[in-house]
Structures are given as structure tokens and as C-alpha cells.
Design a protein around this nucleic acid. Structure first.
Lengths: 254, 254
DNA sequence: CTAACATTGTGTATTCTTTACACAGACGAA
DNA sequence: TTCGTCTGTGTAAAGAATACACAATGTTAG
């Protein structure tokens, strides 16, 4: 199985070099061999300008020319799924120490027009500011999650599932901090939650809630460059969080 | 790629017929072709005798002789992942209208000793009593979840993940009813929750909670064959549940 | 037929959690 | 120095979760 057929990266060149008939021939071969390709797709979220953003590239798969696409690649035979997802992140963003979690496998027979490919969707959260997009091939760009034009393949569906996953997950686990600088103000944190969940929250109750969890450390520093009274900067205490025993009982409710 | 190499069903016979060398040769071929196999594995839960049970077979993969194994199979090239999972269920239990949901993909390179196989784990809930296991090949049997001997492959890990998933999921979604008869007493329902979550619950508060959700219908019938005052039988109103709007806000807590 | 047993069915007081809400103080900008 | 804007704080009220006891019902054993 030739990975180049399926990877987002090389299809166009391949196509130009060999012509469409060749690909069809190869696909027939694949079919007859009863082979299923496996890829990972990363939904990479960032937070900027008080909005949730997602990192996309222009698809260069011919049929989806000019449509936006998630960052993905075929899984190498000798790497774990997680490794493959980390590799995609590293290759595309240069970042290594990133929050990354598997969300769901998408395996409809017709999801990829060229061949049967099952993809494992991963959700990743990175701090936009800490990171400079160095490789801007294929118009790698941040996009607002709320106002998205059409996407390639079933990537819109994957994105929707990952976004819903994030909305739920962020309420139960401390992922949000991956989207913020190490030191952040409570206002930034609240903006983050409000943006992701698309709700307005009461400022005092929000503070009370976080302080009562007792996982934020006062750094003693203050915001700078704000045109008003600066707020205190906090740091999330992961260690303390890890030590906390997880509750198994949330209360039945549906 | 020859599915028989990997499927749980036929390895032994194949092995006996062709000898081990042949398989190794084929595996080499697979390696050199950079192919990854895809399977589904179903964690099928049932509830009986006030205990959570899981349906397992004896693995007939040589290396895991006499170890217990989940029900799974390679995904056919022309079927969706969900379809494959339903097929496994149908083939193994004869049941068709079953609760089934994808939980997670497991794709470590070394999880299958014979080849690279990524498996998508599904969780399924069925009512043991409604169902007679007709095909008892490979010692298909129900096992207590709590006291489990060693399992084949990484199936123990998969089971653990699915069990944890179930514990969380049952508190937020009405899956539990799939494990019970259509008409059930509140005591049965409570036993179910207590067994799955491994907690003791207050009887009055449990009732209060479920009645306040307003999704149980009194059938007007009573339990029979109990050596004490019979309880009322209820039915879960799925329609009403569907109409209910889902809440997006649960409250931040971790 | 009766008594003993086991389990159902029900309400209230208490605690904890969530929500709603307003004003003084700090800093920056002009 | 004043104005504007945001930070930081507490309390009262409503709602949700918990703890807890006793009468009613059917079964079984004597």
C-alpha cells in the first residue's frame, strides 16, 4: 500500500506526475487486496483574541481543492496511534509538549473518495502565543471555530465531534490551561470558558468556584499592558491536581 | 491481506493446516507491504444475579491458548466500523437490536503478536434474560467483571477502559435500561446502579431522583414471584427523553 | 388463621451547592 | 486631578443532595 496515494501532502504532485488513470488503477489494486488505510487527524485548538480557533490547511486533494482540512497523515506501520498524532503535531507546528487526546475513530466506507481509510481523530490544545507557525505550507492558518466555511472529507463532522467533546471535557478536567500562558489572570480563564462554552458566567461565582477547588497558585505577579487595574496572575498546580482522588460518583442525571 | 491470519476464529485451524512457517512468511509479507489491520472488539455487558457480567470466549490464538478474549473480528472492506461491530454481535449472540457505542481505538504496535492490528473497541449492553446464547463455540460464557482471570492480547486493558466508560456514561445517559427487562422495579434499577458503580445508594433518595427526572412510566403491573411485597413495575420513556433538551452546562468541577 | 418476616412506599429537616447581585479600590489615560 | 474601566470581595436566597424512620403489603411457616 502506497501511503502517498492517501496522504494529504502528496496527492497533487502524484496526480500531476502520473495522471488520474494510474491512481484509479492503484485504487483497484487496493480494493482487490481488501486493504483499509489508517490515518490520524488532529483537531488543534488554540485560543486567541478571546475566541476559540482551530488550525487548518488547504486540502490539496484534488476533489476538495480549496476546502479546509484537518492536519493528518497515514499511520506508519511502526508507530502507535498516539505517536502518529504527536508526529503530525510536531511536523506541522514544531511543538512537542502539547495536550493531545484521542477522541473517536471515523470509519465510514465512503468518507475518503479515493480509498477506504479509517481515521482516528485526536484533539489537541496549544497556546497560540507560545507558538510561531514556522511552516506555512498549504496556507496553514488559524480559523474561528464558529464561522467556518466548507471543509474537505468528513472533517467538518470530525471537528464538530471534537468541539462537543472539548465543551464537555473542559468542565470536568483541567485542559483549558493548555490554551493559556503558564501565568494567567482569572479574567483570561473566564474568557476562555465563556468562549468555548458559549455562555456568560458570573464573575464572582466563577472566581469562587475556582478558588474553592484550591488548584490555582498566586504567582504574586500582576498583569502588564492592560489599560486598567491589572489583575493577579495565577498558575495551575498540576501536582496538586494529580494527587487529588478522582471521584467515581457524579450523581445520576440525564 | 488474508483476514484469516488475524481473526480469532480461524487461526488454530489455519495453523494446523499450514504449519507455523507459512504464517511467519505471510506476516513478513504483511510487514513489507506496510499494512495495518483493522478490527472491532465488542465488550458486551449483561446484568444477572445482581452482578455485571461480560461475554467472553476462549481465545484460540495459539499464543493465548486458554485465555479469555473479547468478541471481535477484522473489519470488512465494505462495511462501516459500526456495521462491523453489529455484525460481531449478531454473529455471536443472535441479537440485533442492541445498545452499541464506540469507546476507543487501541493501536499500540505490539498489541497483537502476529501482526499490526488496530482495534476499535465498542461497548454493548444486552439483557441476558431476553437472550439465549445459542452458539456456544469457544466456550462463549458470561463472566463476572470483578473477578476475571487473565485475558488474551490487551483485552484486559480494553475491558477496563470500557468498564470505566460505562460507569461514567450510565450516570449521564439512560443506557442502564438496556440491561434490564422492559418492565422493571425500582429495586432492580437501583441494584443495577449499585453493581455497576460499586456504591451503596439510599433507597429513598434514589427513587426521588428518578421520579424527579420524570422519565419512568408506571405500567400498573406488579412484580411476581418475589417472596415479599411486590414492587411496581416501570417502563423507561425513551420518547420523552429524546424530546428533552440536552444541557450544555454541567458546572465546572475537577 | 396468625404471627413473623422481608421489602415496598413515603416526607422532612439539614447541609451543601449554586445563583443572583453591588460597591469600593486600583491603575491607566487624558 | 479626574474619568473610565476593570479588579476584588461577601451575603442572602433558592435549589439540590443527604440522612434518616415508620406504616403498609404480600409471603411464608407454624
Amino acid at each position: 500500500m502506497n501511503p502517498e496515494i492517501l496522504s494529504n501532502k502528496n496527492v497533487l504532485t502524484k496526480d500531476a506526475a502520473t495522471g488520474q488513470k494510474d491512481i484509479k488503477t492503484i485504487l483497484k489494486e487496493l480494493e482487490s487486496e481488501d486493504i483499509i488505510g489508517i490515518s490520524v487527524d488532529c483537531v488543534i485548538f488554540g485560543f486567541d483574541d478571546n475566541e476559540l480557533k482551530v488550525l487548518l490547511i488547504k486540502s490539496d486533494f484534488q476533489q476538495y481543492e480549496n476546502k479546509w482540512s484537518l492536519l493528518g497523515d497515514l499511520v506508519n506501520n511502526h508507530e502507535d496511534l498516539d505517536e502518529a498524532a504527536y508526529r503530525v503535531l510536531r511536523e506541522r507546528t514544531g511543538m512537542d509538549d502539547v495536550y493531545l487526546e484521542q477522541v473517536k475513530a471515523f470509519g465510514e466506507t465512503n468518507r475518503h473518495p479515493a480509498a477506504r481509510v479509517v481515521t482516528i481523530a485526536y484533539c489537541s490544545l496549544i497556546n497560540i502565543e507560545h507558538h510561531q507557525l514556522k511552516i506555512l505550507a498549504n496556507e496553514l492558518h488559524w480559523h474561528r471555530v464558529t464561522t467556518l466555511s466548507e471543509m474537505a472529507f468528513d472533517h467538518r463532522k470530525i471537528l464538530d465531534v471534537c468541539y462537543a467533546w472539548l465543551q464537555k471535557r473542559i468542565q470536568e478536567h483541567p485542559l483549558g490551561f493548555s490554551l493559556l500562558p503558564k501565568k494567567f489572570s482569572l479574567r483570561e480563564l473566564q474568557n476562555l470558558y465563556e468562549a468555548i462554552l458559549d455562555v456568560k458566567l458570573d464573575r464572582r461565582n466563577f472566581r469562587k468556584k475556582f478558588f474553592s477547588m484550591d488548584l490555582l497558585e498566586d504567582t504574586g505577579e500582576l498583569e502588564t499592558d492592560v489599560p486598567h487595574r491589572p489583575g493577579k496572575l495565577y498558575r495551575f498546580n498540576y501536582e496538586k491536581y494529580q494527587k487529588k482522588e478522582r471521584k467515581k460518583w457524579f450523581g445520576i442525571d440525564f
